Amino acid sequence: MKPIKISLLIAFIPGLVQAVNWSDGPLMVRSQAPVKSLVLSPMFRPAYYQPGGPQVDAAFYAASIYAIDTDYVMDYYTIEYRLGMLWSPSQRWQFGWSIASRTTNDAHLDQLTLSFHKLFGIDQNGRDQVPKHRSYLSIPKADFEVADFSGESIGRQYELSIGRSLYNRHRHNLSTTVVLAYEDDDNPRSGGGWDGSVQLDYQYAWGDSVAYLMGAMAYTDGDTLFGFELETSSWHWGLGFRHQLAPRHQLLLEYNAADGILHNLGQFKSSVHEINAGYRYHYRQLALEGVIIENFKYPDNSADVALVAKLRYQF
Rank of each mutant, 00 (worst) to 15 (best):
R45D: 03
A47Y: 00
Q50C: 02
G53F: 05
G53C: 05
P54N: 11
D57V: 00
A59P: 01
A59L: 09
A59Y: 03
A59H: 03
F60D: 07
Y61C: 03
A62G: 15
A63D: 09
A63M: 12
S64P: 10
S64E: 03
I65P: 13
A67E: 08
I68L: 15
I68V: 15
D69T: 13
D69S: 14
D71P: 10
Y72C: 13
V73S: 15
V73Y: 15
M74R: 12
M74Y: 11
M74I: 12
D75T: 09
D75Y: 08
Y76H: 11
Y76P: 12
Y77S: 14
Y77N: 11
T78F: 08
T78A: 11
I79N: 10
E80C: 12
E80M: 13
E80R: 14
E80I: 13
Y81V: 05
Y81I: 06
R82I: 08
R82F: 07
R82Q: 11
R82T: 09
L83G: 14
L83F: 12
L83C: 04
G84D: 01
L86C: 05
L86V: 05
P89K: 00
S90F: 03
Q91R: 08
W93C: 01
Q94P: 02
F95L: 04
F95E: 01
F95H: 00
G96C: 06
G96K: 01
W97K: 01
